[in-house]
Design a protein around this nucleic acid. Structure first.
Length: 177
DNA sequence: GTAACGATCCTC
DNA sequence: AGGATCGTTACA
């Protein structure tokens, strides 16, 4: 069952962990439908959060985050990697959950590369799109939190425990590294 | 205009 | 430890 706007309208601190264990469903250009369990997310919350792109205010790039939750926010980082975020919260509350990992693809740049996510997905509506959406899995996995990755510049905000990892995946990762 | 900087990943 | 690679932002 596909999630609706009421789900994405939750505060990002609720939505980001709620996405863990759910199914990200993608339709390839060849019309193959694949679903992946979401395993890792991060929350970016409001203009006051110095790690959030909206801390720079309303710009052409961040405009999408000011929409009601349910759209994708896609941007290019380091000139090479597309980051996929789920816009959360109410209109004019700039919030987004970064998808950092899915089953089989650990890392935000790797998963977008694997799924063919690019700039054309910016603003995609997860409630209505015919090529990407999220469905309820029935899972309610345990998870752990850590500070967010790669945002050391964000002052006191860098320590917020707003990274969420599904526990079963975390254990496997710890043993592997 | 011009310059600096990334919510990363891969290869030394 | 360092390089790839380019859109966004800030500032002149």
């Amino acid at each position: 069952m596909r999630f609706g706007y009421e789900f994405y309208g939750n505060d990002v601190l609720t939505l980001a962990p709620s996405l863990l264990g759910q199914y990200l469903v993608c339709v390839s250009p060849e019309n193959n439908v694949t679903r992946y369990i979401i395993t890792e997310t991060e929350a970016y919350r409001g203009e006051e959060d110095l790690a959030c792109h909206a801390s720079k205010g309303r710009t052409q790039r961040t405009e999408i985050m000011y929409n009601r939750g349910g759209n994708l926010y896609i941007y290019l980082i380091y000139g090479m990697y597309w980051m996929m975020n789920v816009v959360a919260g109410n209109k004019n509350e700039p919030q987004a959950a970064l998808i950092r990992g899915i089953e089989g693809f650990d890392g935000p740049g790797k998963l977008t590369r694997a799924l063919g996510i690019d700039k054309s997905f910016n603003g995609e509506d997860l409630v209505k799109s015919d090529r990407i959406w999220i469905t309820e899995s029935g899972m309610n996995p345990d998870y752990i939190t850590t500070p967010r990755i790669g945002i050391g510049y964000a002052g006191e905000w860098k320590d917020k425990p707003w990274r969420y990892l599904m526990k079963s995946i975390t254990v496997a990762t710890l043993h592997a590294t």
